[in-house]
Design a protein around this nucleic acid. Sequence first.
DNA 1: GCAAGGTC
Length: 918
Amino acid sequence: MSGGGGAAGRGINVLNVAEKPSVAKSVATLLSRNQGLRVRDGRSRYNKVFEFGYSIRGQPCHMIMTSVTGHVTELDFDDRFRKWNSCDPADLFHAPIRKAVPQDKMDIKRTLEEEAKRSQWLVLWLDCDREGENIAFEVIEICTAANRHLTIKRARFSALIEREIHDAVQNLVQPNKWFSDAVDARQEIDLRIGASFTRFQTMLLTNAFAIDSATSDRSLVLSYGPCQFPTLGFIVERYWEIQSHEPEEFWTINCSYRCDEGVANFNWTRGHLFDYTCAVILYEMCVEESSATVTGVRQQEKHKYPPHPLNTIELEKRASKYFRMSSEQTMKVAEELYQAGFISYPRTETDNFSARTNLLAIVQEQQSHPTWGPYAQRLLDPNSGLWRNPSNGGRDDKAHPPIHPTKYSAGENSWSQDHHRLYELVVRHFLACVSQPAVGAETTVEIDIAGEQFNASGRVIIAKNYLDVYRFESWGGSVIPTFTSGQQFIPTTLTLDSGVTRPPPLLSEADLLNCMDKAGIGTDATMHDHIKKLLDRYYATKDQNTRFSPTSLGEALVMGYDDMGYKLWKPNLRAMMEMDMRAVSEGAKTKDEVLETCLQQMKACLLDARLNKQKLMEAMALFFERSTQLERDDQHVIRGYVRVCSLCRDSNMLLKQNRDGNYFVGCQGYPQCRNVVWLPGSVSEAVVTTGICGSCTPGPVYKIQFKFRRLEIPPNYDVAHLGCIGGCDDILRQLTEICGTGSRMAARVQPPTPHSSSVPRRNNAQVAPCIYCRQTGHSSSNCPSQIVSPKKSRSRQGSTGNGESSISCTTCGASCILRTANTANNKGRKFYSCQTQGCNFFAWEDSLGTGARGGRATPSSVNPSISFSGRASGNSVWGRGRGSQGVFVSATGDPVTGRCFICGDPSHFANVCPNRNT
DNA sequence: GCAAGGTC
């Protein structure tokens, strides 16, 4: 069929590319039959280049075989969208993206380019799944850019077996664009959803709450991903199920009979009753009856079947169950055993052996093993009747066979205990798969006492078969005495027993993998990564029994989205995406169609989540304190990101508070960039929101929720104000003018020059134009029209006749009355206020014409309060939907009814219960 | 500083 091995001779150069170095080596070895095979280094130290002669359908070829290591390119946003504060997270749904070769893959790219230039054919040996097909197109892209005359061919193989490989190379096909398109769509959707939601929730919550975790050494990222979040959802859902479980007492009647032959324990056919009175009545009837009557004896042969052939998820589940190995560790060890040639490819969905697999040969290899060798010998003996063709688990990824041993080993010196265990599991599992099921004889006896039915059963194992080798499973059996129908006996014991219902256990790693597998979350190669990510993100913890609980952070996030009504933490979204991907890979839908509908929906979801962010905040507030103090630089408390600097356009503008408590928005690039916007001195509190100004550029400019001290602002201004520092906000501008700022420079009297280079000038660059003359280029405090000598000032002011003077309102032109303040902070201080209803003009007399107009005279005596709290509106319902006994928490956190549902204590609620497992 | 998917 082929002309493998030997010298290359003349012929075309064929560049062969595999998905990983090990496959390149295997394929090269198999095709060359290890004759005339030369190896040299490529640009990448991991990816060798093999060369040998071969002939494809009679065409002499010089084969050049190399590899990549998975994907060569990565998808990411254009540079200008890469910085977290560079854009509105919602923009990430349509921001330009590009595929690029990351730095650590550049040497692989160079090897491909160099080899492509001297080749006529390109043969793709990537794994035969969707991801493999996508990588094939990445390789095509790189190679054809270097040599556009290349003839492109795809080798399809399902195992690294000599015959398969020779077949594949003699029957080359074309790569499948639909498969590749499905992966492109998946990548784009994952990136856009992941990045947008991660930025949204991280920026919203990490600054707003004091999230205590082991993260003090690095900044906390609250990531969202279409796989990690549903995985968290499973953990939280089970946790809530347990939390909401109410123990309920039940009663059951048990009966036993002991004789020379042994004991039979009879179970009540009713199971159990929750009604005590009813149970007592039935029990008393049984007690009064003198004897039990056997109403039936059944004997049946039962089988316990060996497991299906082993795929990745099953390997992870069983290693977790039998050895308590984490899925991550299992995959690490399995990969090493695979690399060393002891087991087959460990990342496979397939749990069905193809008819072409030589199963006998695999068993034969294991015959000499000291422990399971004798069992393998029995299997091979036709007289033993132990052999049975393996069952079909119904899954096939068309790329790899089930995991099975590929090389005999009695254990290597370099192996750890985990290597020994895992190899043993793979071998024993394989031997079990090709074995007969265990056979048992089961006897069921039914009796009647006073009209109540009871039954007991016993089992005798007739043939252990596969259980002889699969030591991880057992089949309990008990022998019961012989009974005959119609027989009567007096029970040895007859008791009324009580029990209590129990909640289900926390999810184990095997349970979690099961949930993910059923819902299609992740791939066999990545499921363990998603589980690990939850631990890394402090969303969940794993106890000694490999059982998972959510942390407060994980629970709060899921609760927040749940309260919004979005099932983002449910697996449905991923399942729908997976269906779409399948449709693309089958040509039923196009990539663009799927992208458009999916991204449109998810963008709407993000926008809605932003509108309802209060729900997230409320959920977080149940578990975390509001952060009172955030990051600090040398001089200031940093209160949040506002915008990209409008001056240097490079650094971020942050809302900060100086030591005197005054707020300003300054450029992080200080002192190189000195851009600053000072805020009114009357601000008692300022919090950056996720709201974005619709008009100020360059955007996004995040709005700030201000709270002003009532007594320091004119009465016609609201205490609360959602403002923008980008220049569009009239109210903020007016209050800055009226109250002055906390800038030390601004507090001084400014020289009356319109070209002052002091800090307020920058301030004015942001808050322009001047409120007096509506001109830009100077501050209102320096307005030439307002700067007058005291004498001149007085002469401009008319007398009101009652001892008070007046000026003209610069806003509406009406007359302003000079009045005397009578407030705690400004007692006796004079101010002008406009008499026109609805006009906001207000000015302190002593500040007219200075840079310190209306500045704070004394520290506020007003107790600052939180501008919006986590429980500001509506009732939060603790435990809603998670059980019938949820405890209600009012808007203020006070109880409405009830008690802690964890420990029952009426003095506190479940969210602060000391017994709460956080 | 974001995802999930390959793989070393």
